Simulated scan of single mutants.
Amino acid sequence: MDFNALNKNLETIIQQKSMLADMDYSDETYDDAEEKLHEFEDDFLENYGEYLEDILEDLYEQHSPTLDVLSPIAYIARNYSPLEETEAGQQYSFKPQDAVQFEVQKAPKMDARLVFIPNPVRLLLVLDKKEVSELWRLSEDKQPK
């Protein structure tokens, strides 16, 4: 598996979603841009879906065994904002409400959200819109360069 490509494909989806978020539905190019996003998502799932589903299943088993794992695409936030450019690549922020809801067995009353972010690819858990912890990241030998 090409882990650099996984990172790049995730970032492409994020950029396409951000572009769509900035467009008005009446824009004549909106439908084409939305179709392109769906193509990127389909390719992403075809190439990395099984790998990411295995990771998600392990995390759900640890933190919320009664919930069903969603498609890996669901864990990409609705919108991201670019932050700084680092040695690892463009860093992004997101609004917790744009991430998928999750239930943490040990903290059932907290608003918990899961989200993938790139550079490096990792899965973050956000609790009550402020406490962020990294649940998973590509191992060091599989980091994008």
Rank of each mutant, 00 (worst) to 15 (best):
P82K: 13
L6R: 05
P96Q: 00
I14D: 00
Q15Y: 08
T29E: 09
K36L: 14
M23Y: 00
D31K: 11
L6Y: 02
V69A: 01
N9H: 14
D27E: 13
L37C: 02
A21C: 03
V100W: 10
I13G: 01
Q101Y: 08
L67M: 14
N7H: 03
Q90Y: 00
K145Y: 12
D2L: 06
D2H: 02
E57P: 05
Q91N: 15
V115F: 05
T86S: 12
V69Y: 00
K109D: 13
L20N: 02
F3D: 02
A112M: 15
D43H: 09
N9V: 04
A112L: 02
Q97S: 05
D111S: 14
D128M: 01
D32V: 14
E46I: 13
P72I: 01
R78C: 11
I13L: 06
Q15I: 12
V100A: 12
Q62T: 15
H38G: 05
I76D: 05
L83F: 08
V126C: 05
L56F: 00
D58K: 13
K95I: 12
K129L: 11
E84Q: 07
I55V: 10
L20Q: 09
R122S: 10
E34K: 02
S64M: 03
S71Y: 08
Q15N: 10
K109Y: 12
A5W: 01
Q105G: 13
L125D: 05
A33M: 12
F44Q: 10
S93I: 04
T86A: 09
L52R: 03
P96W: 05
W136D: 03
V100K: 10
L135G: 01
E87Q: 15
A88D: 11
E53L: 02
L138D: 00
R137D: 02
